[in-house]
């Protein structure tokens, strides 16, 4: 793991991607801090951090798009996967390198509240919770970005998918307002999800029988539940889509109310991203 971590850190800064990502983050967060706190005199970092979230549209694809996609394209993954270092070590080494690069500007951000204490500000805890929320959300994005990169050998496709994912998760609260939440619409939405599950399973297993059976079983359970208790479908669409709602969880978290639930939400994305990346590498060996 250490070998991969060191190599990845080195590669981040020799290929300029790391330097660009750090520079962009420092520029945008510094600008926001200057604008909201030093110019407008707001007492908390909340607004500066919330408005800095837009840098994820740039930083996440820049850092994560090449992590595995380039290895695959250059066939250097053969060196990694035939070495005694296990897949977990490879994935963790790469992920920790991404997190380290991302942590550099976040550490600089940690000085912002200290600067504000010079002006009599007393919301240090709130500010650091804001920064923690920002850091954990960034780590969750990087984890998912790494997984996306492991699914393709084209860095551009990985970058586009990363941007799409950031967009979806940031705009999900807005998307709720245009989606009808009636019980029948919820049933249709869940049926569509069942079909999607079946399709995903087909792409992963190439077994038409298993995937069709799974999709049919899920659809049957949904219809059965709808027939006996349609009321339980009320608001179901929203509750499913809320899984993708990073913005609301971040706002709850960065709003000053540190909650384990919100922390766990992002931590579970980090864990899922790492796990799925390892599975994606393993799956490629079998396909």
């Amino acid at each position: 793991m250490t070998a991969v971590y060191r190599k990845e850190m080195r590669s981040c800064f020799t290929s300029m991607t790391g330097a660009v990502a750090v520079a962009v983050m420092l520029f945008v967060t510094g600008l926001m801090f200057r604008y909201y706190n030093l110019y407008y005199g707001l007492l908390t970092l909340h607004y500066a951090v919330s408005n800095s979230v837009l840098i994820f549209y740039i930083v996440v694809p820049v850092l994560s798009m090449r992590v595995f996609a380039e290895e695959r394209r250059n066939r250097t993954d053969q060196l990694l996967l035939t070495s005694p270092t296990g897949i977990t070590g490879i994935v963790m080494g790469k992920y920790l390198a991404l997190v380290t690069v991302f942590a550099i500007p976040v550490i600089v951000m940690c000085f912002f509240p200290l600067i504000m204490t010079r002006f009599g500000q007393e919301t240090l805890k709130w500010d650091y919770v804001c920064i923690l929320a920002f850091f954990v959300m960034g780590c969750a994005y990087l984890s998912v970005g790494m997984f996306i990169s492991s699914c393709t050998e084209n860095s551009i496709i990985a970058a586009v998918l990363c941007i799409l994912f950031v967009f979806m998760t940031q705009m999900m609260s807005g998307i709720f307002t245009i989606i009808s939440t009636g019980t029948f619409q919820s049933l249709l939405f869940l049926l569509a999800l069942a079909v999607l599950c079946g399709l995903l399973m087909f792409f992963m297993t190439h077994s038409m029988l298993t995937s069709s059976f799974t999709a049919a079983l899920l659809a049957f359970i949904c219809m059965l539940a709808y027939y006996f208790r349609p009321s339980c479908f009320s608001g179901r669409t929203e509750s499913v889509l809320r899984i993708l709602d990073f913005a609301t969880h971040f706002e709850d978290f960065a709003g000053g109310s540190f909650s384990v639930v919100n922390l766990l939400f992002f931590v579970s994305y980090i864990a899922a991203g790492i796990l799925l990346t390892a599975q994606s590498l393993l799956k490629r060996r079998w396909s």
């Binding site: 070998a3 060191r6 190599k7 070495s83 005694p84």
Partner: peptide, 8 residues
């Protein structure tokens, strides 16, 4: 050097 570290 990287390959040597990778091979433990």
């Amino acid at each position: 050097g990287f390959a040597a570290a990778l091979k433990k």
